[in-house]
Amino acid sequence: MEAFETKIHRQSAWQIQRSVVFGIFIRELENRFGRYALGYLWAPLEPLVYVIVLSLVRGRFAAGDIGGISPVVFFASGVLGYIFFRQIPITSLSCVESNQGLFNYQRVKPADIFVARFILESLIILFVAVLLFPLLLGVGQDFTINDPLRLFAVLATFLVFVAGLGLTCTALGPLWIEAKKVLPLLIRPMFFISGIFFPLVSVPVALRSYLTWNPVLHALELTRDAAFVGYNLAPEVSFSFLFWCAVISFAFGLSVYRLLRIKIVTSGTIR
């Protein structure tokens, strides 16, 4: 391990960035789980409950696969994607507010807190996925990985898309208090229109154009297609649409943050 540079002004920008994100990551980790009795076990609980409820409901009405893959695997992938999409913007809103004391330290900027939270939330989802899918294999819900490289590309694009939303929320959260009320109202309906419990192929062709404006739907469909052999991908689903949504969302997030970066820290400060 390299020696710690005690001379603060000799630390490089990269060293500073890394220490700050690491420091906040550890704090966020403690903040998120440290206070609860079962700690980290809470993370997989929510997706598990969703998947079980959806599977039970589905089991009562129909049998067989959904879109060419096992229903439980289908729900699990959808639910994890949705939870990630929901968590990032909502947790980003309070980045500044819940770390107010830390802006007393010059090197801490709201973006660092966003990055740390983003990494934490991503790792939680990854951790749950790594736990959940082998478990499904174990209980006889079969699936085969289709195209790991393409899966990686789709997930990376989705991550960038969500990161753009998160950055926007980081910047708007402290300036627009009502966002905390409004955002959940905007996100909740996404559960029903993003293909979490139905594949696009099961939607009548005439109705599909109403759903395909939603980038989350594209992301989930593309993920399933890349992840599982035998998935029936609707022809309307397009990677380039998701890609451009990601570019626009990220560029928008960066610009909003850049414009407001000073205001969000100094707002509400007197003297």
């Binding site: 060293q15 220490s19 700050v20 690491f22 420091g23 550890i26 704090r27 403690e30 330290y105």
Partner: peptide, 18 residues
């Protein structure tokens, strides 16, 4: 950060400064 102990706060800030 108010709800954290002095020790936890100091650890976070030591981390921040590498």
């Amino acid at each position: 950060i108010n709800h954290m102990t002095g020790r936890q706060n100091c650890r976070v800030i030591c981390n921040l400064y590498g």
